[in-house]
Write a protein that binds this DNA or RNA. Sequence first.
DNA 1: AGGTCAATTACGTAG
DNA 2: CTACGTCCATTGACCT
Length: 470
Amino acid sequence: MAPPKLNEYERKRLENIRRNNEMMAALKVHSKATALSNHSKIVAKSYTVKLEKKPKIETPIVIRRSLRTRGIPPDSKGLDLDANSDSNTSTHNSPNKVEKFVQTLGPISMKDAYKGTDDSDRSFIESLVSMSNKGLLEEELEGPAKKKKTECSFELESLSLDPENIARVVPGRITQVRFFPSKDVNMIAAGNKFGDIGFWNVGESEIFLYHPHAAPISGILFQQHCLSKIYTSCYDGFIRLMDAEKEIFDMVYNSSDNACIYALSQPKNDANCLYLSEGKGGLAVLDNRIGKCSSHWDLHGARINTIDFNPQSSHIVATSSSDGTACTWDLRCIGGRKHTALRTFAHKRSVQSAYFSPSGSSLATTSMDDTVRIYSGVNLEDETSVYHFNQTGRWLSTFRAIWGWDNSYLFVGNMNRGVDIVSTVQKATVKTLESPHISAIPCRFDAHSFEVGMLAGATSGGQIYVWTSS
DNA sequence: AGGTCAATTACGTAG
DNA sequence: CTACGTCCATTGACCT
């Protein structure tokens, strides 16, 4: 099935390019009425939130360049990017290009970060706080999830997309999407390219949009026992902790040498430690008790795109990197001069993700070499490679195949605005979720921990589509 | 080995 | 409906 699919993608791509060229050429001529029927007729839901507080947002924001003039130590944030921003001398140079990586040190109040009308997020904040008071019992955390992981028997055919479950949650390209790990709500948090975080209670029309960061969001991490606290990591080099009780986005980490943070993760059994990837292949352990990194290792030759803990053994972690490899590590053995991976999974191009299956027995990677690979067996020595076109191009977030609710299926976006479902048993794409309601390509996904069949797909236009299982 | 540069081509929105 | 602007990824080709 692979060759015909490749041809189809290639044909579409080439056709796109050709059409663009034709249009360019046609600018000089005058004529043309060839209405190609494509899928641009779909009307996507638009914002329900009013974005009126622009001036408010800009006040607390500090231009990086001015940090020095304000007496802030230069090592807190360098300005290399400003210095060499001209190196990219493309045809366009927008005037506000200089404002990139603008960020405020210290906490930001949720009020200041809120992009809706004044205080209209009051009830949302209160609901977050009440969620945290309630908390989750250990058995609630383990019970259903475990049950689902072992004997999840939902039908792929039952997945459907209700138009109610579509919303534009943030402007622009979504880089991260996460369901709240809660039995009681179907709440989604989404982070975008601009550093916004949007919240959406699936099925409802209200959106709560905040701007705690100034660059692409690279991680959203919930505290399992306290849903009112959410960590966010960002290319701006900051990790913040949204605390709905204090109503702030606190700053818990500031990358020292102006390094981008590309991924954020946490082992299940240790709430004190955050694992983050920064810079060119670095993995750091942030100890919240001391507010500093207790370890910093150079594990890869290029940026680490994902960090994923094995659900069964929390000292085993998988990393995926743009250096073309995915690796598994034993955290107990890392350290010293040389870091040796348990296993290295070589790909022909950069690896965008490496995720353990719910049981922890398999690892799935997604790579720019146009494969989704599944490693299984006692030492993950059995490799299955499934062809999957992963050339998302410049404007889309890269594809990352995620696990569903058991070890049998992977979900990954495709360039035809569908969601490919890869069966690990049949070692092939067995089904593609499609809908006329989808008006853009879903790139990033999350599966609800407690609702089998509830799958969120996020696009580069800010929409989120939530499939449900009836 | 490591920097630089160009090419890629989806989506929302302004007109 | 069409045209414009986006621009923090990735890669290969070319240079030092």
